[in-house]
Design a protein around this nucleic acid. Structure first.
Length: 485
DNA sequence: ATGTGC
């Protein structure tokens, strides 16, 4: 595709569109990418990032990460920091799946120990962790109890025996965003979410058994600090979010914002999908609270899935989760908005940072890091396609430019429809099995949509984040077992 | 992404 004529190369990994690119732009666009990745980006990405640059209160740049692609309103991979006093909050800058995120869990097992029981393990995971559209979890929860989940996140899990103190320590914001008031979530949102705690969902959500092969370790010292200490160590990575609850919250407030944005607040946007409200307005604050509830649902969801995983491994290997070393490396969200303090033009400022398909990436010594990661920087978990593997990285100081943010995944290269035309789920499953990856899925059609060829090369994406100094590669993790929605 | 969209 032809790049916009006004796109200017700032460095080997920074590409800038000036405010003259589009009428109404308040700040320039900055695309962070290597040249080959930039060439694969759709025209829509530049257009959408430029639309975001027009949003009231945006500070510094409208960013797009190296895995950026076309999304709802904002590009996926979009990062926008707003001045909270003058700026807006926009659901399109967070995504429908609020607190979609990644969790990585250690074991002290090796691939050699797991292989003989892999089928049993994956089958039991598939049985115990509900997958697919509309799936329900095992946690029986009244609506009023569910409101506690929304207000407390992982802290609720700790109270109910689904979490350890260490789990909370190893979760972004300790698995609980403060200021979540469940009364800002509609009854419909609560209805959709109440029986979905501990469920994986569908689409690109998965739970994977992976191996850290010695030849895939990029940074031995940091790998050790993150708990990767044994050759061919088995780890578990999973990807899911806040399910129906987050989706309904996004839907509800998009509607509200469309109603009040122009009429009440006089804001016009370049695209209806950028519906927003002033952050300090009643509507903006209500959405911010409901979004936090969805964030907490996302953390609780992943925490209960971890609880089930511990039971499954315990049953198959006849050892306790402690004995199996099933400790968390980290849990990090990639669809949120957060009030954070950042240094802008030499001054500390509080900003509302939208990250949509973009991962927080704190560098060494950043406040908010668990003590054990002070020297290494934050573990960053980037999921690739189910065929090609995923990465554990570490946050770098250089990410301060992007408000401490890096990429989140591979990014699709083709539509789900197109991918489904190119292969059949059952055929793919057989091919993967031959290559030593055992997969169970709720939907063969859904599996075909997630084929490796439908995604950008994760090696290229993570290399670009390293070149741009946003995060550095620690270890590539390759799949041997996978359950999918 | 989503009790899947026209």
């Amino acid at each position: 595709m032809t790049l916009p004529a006004q796109l200017r190369q700032v460095s080997s990994t920074i590409w800038e569109l000036p405010v003259s690119f589009k009428e109404g732009m308040l700040v320039p666009v900055r695309i962070i990418a290597s040249e080959p990745l930039l060439a694969t980006m759709e025209a829509g990405v530049f257009d959408q990032a430029a639309n975001v640059a027009c949003l009231p209160g945006i500070v510094k740049y409208s960013y797009c990460m190296p895995d950026g692609h076309w999304g709802y309103g904002f590009p996926i991979g979009g990062v926008a920091a707003m001045n909270p006093a003058t700026g807006v909050i926009s659901p399109g800058g967070i995504g429908f799946d609020i607190n979609c995120g990644m969790r990585l869990v250690l074991t002290n097992l090796t691939e050699q120990e797991v292989r003989p029981r892999l089928h049993k393990l994956v089958d039991l995971m598939f049985e115990r962790i509900p997958t697919g559209v509309g799936c329900k979890g095992f946690v029986k929860c009244t609506r009023s109890e569910f409101r506690h989940v929304l207000e407390k996140g992982s802290r609720w899990c700790l109270e109910k025996g689904y979490a350890t103190h260490d789990d909370l320590k190893m979760t972004e914001e300790q698995g609980s965003f403060s200021g979540a008031d469940a009364s800002t979530c509609s009854e419909r949102a609560i209805e959709r979410g109440v029986d979905q705690i501990g469920t994986l969902g569908s689409g690109n959500h998965y739970c994977e058994i992976q191996v850290a092969r010695p030849e895939n370790i990029f940074d031995q010292e940091t790998a050790r600090a993150f708990g990767i200490t044994i050759p061919n160590q088995v780890v578990i990575m999973f990807h899911c979010g806040s399910r129906g609850l987050g989706h309904q919250v996004a839907t509800d407030y998009l509607q509200t914002f469309l109603r009040v944005m122009t009429k009440k607040y006089g804001i016009t946007v370049r695209d209806r999908e950028l519906a927003c409200a002033p952050f300090r307005s009643p509507e903006g604050q209500e959405y911010f609270s409901a979004m936090k509830c969805a964030v907490n649902m996302g953390f609780a969801n992943r925490q209960v899935i971890l609880h089930r995983l511990r039971e499954v491994f315990s049953q198959v290997f006849r050892r306790s989760p402690e004995d199996l070393g099933m400790d968390m490396v980290y849990d990090v969200a990639h669809n949120t908005a957060k009030l954070e303090t950042h240094r802008v033009d030499g001054k500390e400022k509080e900003l509302l940072v939208h990250r949509k398909g973009a991962t927080r990436s704190l560098g060494p010594h950043a406040p908010g890091l668990p003590a054990c990661y002070k020297e290494t920087g934050q573990p960053v978990i980037i999921g690739g396609s189910m065929e090609t593997g995923s990465y554990l990285l570490a946050g770098n100081g250089g990410a301060s430019d992007t408000f401490f943010t890096t990429a989140h995944g591979s990014g699709r290269t083709m539509s789900r429809h197109q991918a489904k035309k190119m292969t059949k789920g059952q055929k793919l499953l057989g091919e993967m099995e031959q290559r030593g990856i055992y997969v169970r899925t709720d939907s063969y059609g859904g599996l075909a949509e997630e084929a490796g060829f439908a995604y950008k090369d994760i090696d290229v994406v993570t290399a670009a984040t390293e070149m741009a100094d946003l995060s550095r590669r620690v270890v590539k993790l390759v799949p041997i077992g996978n359950i999918k929605g």
